[in-house]
Design a binder for these strands. Sequence first.
RNA 1: GCCGAUGUAGCUCAGGUGGUUAGAGCGAGGGAUUCAUAAACCCUAGGUCGGCGGUUCGACUCCGCCCAUCGGCACCA
Length: 511
Amino acid sequence: MPAYITTPIYYVNDRPHIGHAYTTTVCDVWARAMRLRGEDVFFLTGTDEHGVKVEKSAAAKGVTPQALADENAAEFQRVLKVFGLTNDDFIRTTEPRHEKQVQHFVKRLLDAGSVYLGTFEGWYDEGQEEYYTETRAKELDYKSPISGRPLTRATEQNYYFKLSSFQKQLEDFFAANPDFVQPAARRNEVLGRLRDGLQDVPVTRTNFTWGIPFPGDEKHVIYVWIDALFNYITALGLGEPGGALATERAKYWPAAYHVIGKEILWFHAVIWPALLMALELPMPRRIHAHSFWIADGQKMSKSMGNFVDLPTIEGYFAKYGLDAWRWYMATQGPLQASDSDFRAQHFHETYTSDLVNVVGNCPSRVTAMINKYFEGKMPADSQAGGEWPAKCAAAVAQWNAAIDELDLVGAAQAAMGLLREVDAFIHRTEPFKLAKDPARADELCSILAQCAETVRIAGVLLEPFLPAKMAGLRVALKQDDGAPLAKRVAWGGLAAGTVLDKCALFPRLEA
RNA sequence: GCCGAUGUAGCUCAGGUGGUUAGAGCGAGGGAUUCAUAAACCCUAGGUCGGCGGUUCGACUCCGCCCAUCGGCACCA
């Protein structure tokens, strides 16, 4: 079954930071988990490269907007590699394939009567060349915050999208699909605002030129937001039915899971579905809006200078490794409705209590005993697993249910639970004491075989989170990673006699 | 300003259609043990459940007001 996972496309005017890293890492864990189940996953990320900010930044640097976009997009792509992310494509909104299709879609909206030419009137700052909302203008006492000169009343012709005409259709859609927006708190925000009523939204601008020209009226540029949203379907070639891209990728729509930050919820939960309705395209499956990282209890901001930026993140890679970073992002991050605090000490404690003490130590003690008592050879289990096959099957079921819901914490806990049970089992049965009593050798064999096999299965479930370290575990257990999940988590994958290497996956580190 | 959410142990959070001793994980302290990365295991949390007022025999759980934090308020990418 196809599945399509997307991040927002990142604005090239920014430098990569924890926000980008987080969303993309969450998507990567999810994509790897689905692939592990044998699903046909397409994972997309990319960059949003148009707009007045890019135009201005480029002018300030004395380069063309395209040159600036090229440079920053290359940086984002480089970073994806450093993070080991497994996106299947990287879309840029300045690529011809995207621009052409956006024009096609906008033309269709125009032909369908969903886009019309209208007049916008508002408070205009001549120095800044921008409009302010009534509320904002009032706050500013109708004066420019930069020059102090009075704002003027100005009008502008723009093309508008008839968002208002989709009110009923959207309400019906939300009623019929209560899980469309996740988490529930975010859905309620959307519903609340929907109740206030919808106004039409402009989809073009005329005060800058760095954008996709509006088809048939080229002094208008397609507004960046509209341009950006379409990336989700231009990457699949839906704007060129029958084209090469569509032939290969059209199957991924509408199996779309859009993972976004909460600041862009409105565009994804309301405007985007309405655009799709206007184009008579099916709705994506889900919008998941996560919250933000804060730093040491403080909101991250440029003025505070407390952004967890790329050099900081690379410092964590150097000390703890890439997998530890993924683990912290996936299990401690703000995937639900509230923000998460990023603290160095918390990172360290999570590393030690989860990865060193459990994921590292449990396989270590099991493989060490098998090496000590059986020269590393996987013992035969005369009990055929005892209670363990059922325990593992239950954990796999729990893991699958969690992955379905993008509940990364739940999926991680399902796997960790098995390892904690193995630890408890060793404590209870004391194989290290049985090893001293030759009369109980058969019992000892069963216990250690059951532990090793459960460790192997837990390791499979942890692969999406800890791909490099779990590859290391596979090597120690003489496993390969080819088979589909159902086969790999079936009891009995470790044949008796297989030589298991002692392994120590996560070194203990000083804080 | 308007709309909405949240505020429970040092930290992160569960929970209860109102009723004897308010829960988990992490951290901290102690114990026991040794297969293991001084790890796993056991015990220990005396928290005005944000504040004030109200309803009630009784509220942390209901109501009102207030305070704090967060999100949204449409062209912001």
